[in-house]
């Protein structure tokens, strides 16, 4: 019985980290029509940012996460027009152009990280690293709990932001229909830049947690790109709630399969699941996607 609860908890806690990636990824898709192939590399860069904060500035990177988020947000805000100009090229499919461009970007980031920082596996130590919470025989690693709590706070904060603020409403309007939103006086370009900045900030934060829980190296991003794709497709393209549900489901499936079926079958079962979702629920598990 304890093992079932522990497995459930493990799944929920890793799902929390996936939520952080999925929320921004889905939003970027909804507003900008881009499927960012470089999502994993934003995770990797976030993890490296945390590592360098720890190594060069000697501070606990987890306490300085706002600095990392702001830096990444600002960098993305500056960079977004470049991406936009690629998407806007006439007579080309925006989604395809973005996919090709971000694919190149991901290769570039990975190559640059390998060249600049080398091949070593690195470790981030935070004040939560060695801590865990024990409740009735269930062990909750503190870092993962913190990541999940953050994911929940961010998601709620985001919902409030999208529903209660002017910018939030503008983002939702742009996500719904760009042309009409433009006619209503919403600056589509500015909304897109804001969204891209939020997305990069969130993903870098996920990177800080992932780097602390696992390890940091230039190649760590790829698997999270795969997970992000899984979450967004299973959740229904562009569906916010669907992505959150899919992120949790992804964590739970991975956790239960590795305990009760065998580690060898994790990916087989995950992608079999995705296959059936696409076959029978083409709008995602909650039926809210495109």
């Amino acid at each position: 019985m304890e093992l079932i609860i522990q497995t459930l908890v493990n799944g929920l806690l890793i799902g929390g980290i996936f939520i952080m990636i999925a929320v921004g990824f889905t939003l970027a898709f909804g507003v900008m029509d881009i499927i960012d192939f470089a999502v994993g590399e934003w995770v990797m860069l976030g993890a490296f940012a945390a590592y360098w904060l720890q190594t060069l500035v000697h501070v606990d990177p987890l306490l300085f996460f706002p600095v990392i988020m702001l830096t990444f947000g600002a960098a993305a805000y500056v960079f977004q027009p470049v991406l936009q100009s690629v998407i806007n090229i006439k007579h080309r499919s925006a989604a395809l152009m973005a996919l090709a461009f971000t694919f190149g970007l991901s290769t570039f980031f990975r190559g640059a990280a390998l060249t600049l920082w080398g091949f070593n596996n690195r470790n981030i130590v935070t004040f939560l690293s060695d801590q865990s919470i024990n409740i009735l025989g269930i062990t909750l690693p503190a870092l993962r709990v913190a990541a999940t709590v953050f994911a929940v706070i961010i998601t709620i904060g985001f919902m409030v932001f999208l529903n209660k603020t002017k910018t939030g409403v503008a983002i939702r309007a742009a996500a719904e229909n760009k042309t009409i939103a433009g006619l209503m006086g919403i600056d589509g370009q500015k909304v897109a830049r804001t969204v891209y900045a939020i997305y990069a900030a969130l993903t870098s934060l996920a990177g800080v947690f992932i780097g602390s829980i696992f390890s940091v190296n230039p190649d760590m991003g790829l698997r999270y790109t795969a997970f992000a794709f899984f979450v967004v497709v299973a959740g229904g393209m562009g569906s916010f709630a669907g992505a959150i549900a899919a992120a949790i489901l992804l964590g739970l499936i991975a956790s239960f399969v590795s305990v009760y079926v065998g580690g060898a079958y994790i990916f087989l079962i995950l992608f079999l699941f995705l296959y059936f979702v696409l076959l029978f629920f083409s709008k995602g598990i909650l039926g809210k996607g495109l």
């Binding site: 304890e2 993962r144 239960f256 590795s258 060898a264 990916f267």
Partner: peptide
């Protein structure tokens, strides 16, 4: 005895082994 894919999250496996 379990063979797992590269890049697996080891937490669930370690939980099971702990048991």
């Amino acid at each position: 005895y379990d063979i797992v894919p590269a890049g697996t999250d080891f937490n669930p496996l370690i939980s099971a082994i702990k048991g």
